[in-house]
Design a protein around this nucleic acid. Structure first.
Lengths: 341, 341
DNA sequence: AAGTCTTGTGGAATCGATTCCATGGAATCG
DNA sequence: CGATTCCATGGAATCGATTCCACAAGACTT
């Protein structure tokens, strides 16, 4: 289809130097004269030379590629995270191989194996499940790795996570102050650290602020929107339904919202709703949604920074970013008619 | 950090065959005996061998990597598209290198150069601008390429696009039937084919259904949400403001929505609003948003299918997917008080 | 029974860069 | 001024797979 592609030898020949010198110029090695730098640059421009990344990586064992493993890019939280990480990586000259695990462990492993084969310089992962064999393989090989958003128990890897506890505690306190006693919680999957931590925080705060500890008030979702719908449906159908709902991530909040709308419940009046994760348009809803917000952009940037430190052979401290409640109109006062439309 | 990594020679030695035979087994070459297949497989498993993708690509000139160039992964439309394409590619054994051009031509070129250096097997791009030099370089090198969502005039590459015309025409007709005469249009950037096509469709339909052709009713945005806000603000401030707004993509519709909310305008009553692109939660708004919908998942899948055909040396026909109006409550009847809150 | 065809195999060349090593000339030193 | 360092350079080895080529041994022809 195309002719034989242009190699560094062609560049070297045109510039009148050896390929060793051409290589040194291209990689910014200081042991080059101004004259050869200039001649090589001219030859590169004339031939529109693009060095073969495979050949370079094979010899130098640096690929300038990082692997980013997320669970679902369609979740706006992960889209923002991917965007932030990818832009931060690009600024450091690294390109990003994206893997969507789709909340599926086999698919996660498939991508991790690919990352190993591609000899990526590092991996940023929002992992799930416990001892994934591929995850262990990544670490055994000494591939620099950081966790983002989520961690895995028993695996000691630097991470950037959110302190969900503070935000959730604020949310529960806020609801309690409004007079809510029965708060339904739509939990994330217990195979993820965020799913487990947020549930623990919720339970602890519920106890602290005197909310009902009825286990029926917790529904286990999977962080995807359909489970938010069915969760809300289930909770509203209880003999003693809650007067407020708290969803552990934004897609499940969207699902819950759909159910509430379908049932004709007025949010903030008939039923309070709070979502974990802020999304631009949550404030545009009528009424605007009360949320637990955290800085996703910082999370992505920080993950790249930590990964670079690990690549440089250091062992950086993990970073925990704060979360905070942003009160909007969806979490109004509990009144006696609540929950009984 | 790690010991010398495991190569195919180690596998071959353990299996008691030559590396040539080991390679044949690994790549599924039929010229192998059952016995060596079995022995190599055992050795691979025992050593947890992951072939070096660089070495393989260098020799075979196949990388099994495709480049996906989008403008902004935070736009839900592109997130859905990325997800669909990535999953379809994975099913074919291809992994995806993601590039976010961020609606910036230099960054688009940066990624295209990276794709060339990485010797990707193919490129799926939602391009912008006209003769990007890097885009020309990609095509000159004969790298299989398909366009998705957008095209570039004068570049003959198979593409998957949406027939915006039918949906926009339906939307304009719908608004005209409701009695609207002045419809504000928040256009996309005219450096993109979708921005241009949709504006043309809108103008043509406006003429056909007798809407005002006042050029002040068109505001040029950039497909990002902030420009939707300022666009709506600008249009509402006209001496003769519109009674309905049509936004050329969903982020701009979200921005317009924010402005309408801030001004206290009731959507569907004080001001009609229609968005191009359907997003899950648009139907959850109060009132639910009327949208022009198209099948993003099919677009992603089709792009991968076309790319595979190009890689196989064929020249597939471009695909145009339909769009259609989905009427919800945000596009109500025009009444005399409209536009004068 | 002798020649032709298959089939599986191993040795060695190859892909395109980087990098080790040796070298020659200029610069610096005592 | 001779010895030593420094610098830029080119030749050749190297990274780890794939693939060309030659070859041996068995399966078929006629």
């Amino acid at each position: 289809m195309t002719g034989p592609s242009i190699t560094i030898k062609d560049v070297a020949a045109l510039a009148g130097v050896s390929s060793a010198t051409a290589s040194r110029v291209l990689s910014g090695n200081p042991a080059t004269s101004a004259e050869s730098r200039q001649k090589v640059a001219a030859a590169v421009a004339e031939l529109d030379f693009h060095p073969n990344a495979q050949a370079r990586a094979l010899r130098s064992t640096r690929t300038n590629v990082i692997g980013l493993l997320l669970s679902d890019i369609r979740n706006p939280f992960f889209a923002d995270l991917a965007h932030a990480a990818e832009q931060a990586a690009l600024a450091e000259g690294l390109v990003t191989l994206l893997g969507n695990a789709n909340e599926s462990i086999p698919q996660q492993d498939r991508y991790l194996d690919t990352f190993i084969s591609q000899r990526v310089d590092g991996v940023i992962a929002a992992p799930q499940g416990e001892g994934s064999s591929s995850l262990r393989a990544v670490l055994e090989r000494g591939i620099p790795t950081v966790f983002v958003d989520r961690t895995v128990d028993g695996i000691d890897v630097p991470s950037v996570t959110t302190d969900s506890d503070s935000g959730i505690r604020q949310a529960v306190e806020h609801l309690a102050r409004q007079g809510h006693e029965r708060v339904g919680y739509i939990a994330g999957p217990q195979t993820t650290s965020t799913g487990r931590d947020r549930l623990k925080s919720f339970s602890r705060a519920a106890r602290e602020f005197g909310l009902s500890a009825d286990p029926a008030l917790t529904y286990f979702g999977d962080f995807q929107s359909a489970s938010g719908s069915t969760g809300a449906h289930h909770l509203l159908g209880l003999a003693q339904p809650p007067t407020a709902l708290l969803a552990a991530d934004s897609p499940m909040a969207v699902g819950a919202l759909a159910t509430l709308n379908r049932k004709g419940l007025r949010i903030g009046r008939d039923m309070a709703l709070i979502a974990f994760d802020d999304i631009e348009w949550f404030s545009l809803l009528d009424p605007p949604l009360t949320v637990i917000s955290h800085d996703v952009e910082a999370m992505g940037r920080t993950a790249v920074r930590l990964l670079l430190e690990v690549i440089d052979g250091h062992k950086p401290e993990s970073v925990v970013l704060p979360s905070e409640l942003i009160v909007r109109a969806s979490s109004g006062t509990a009144d006696p008619s609540l929950g009984r439309p």
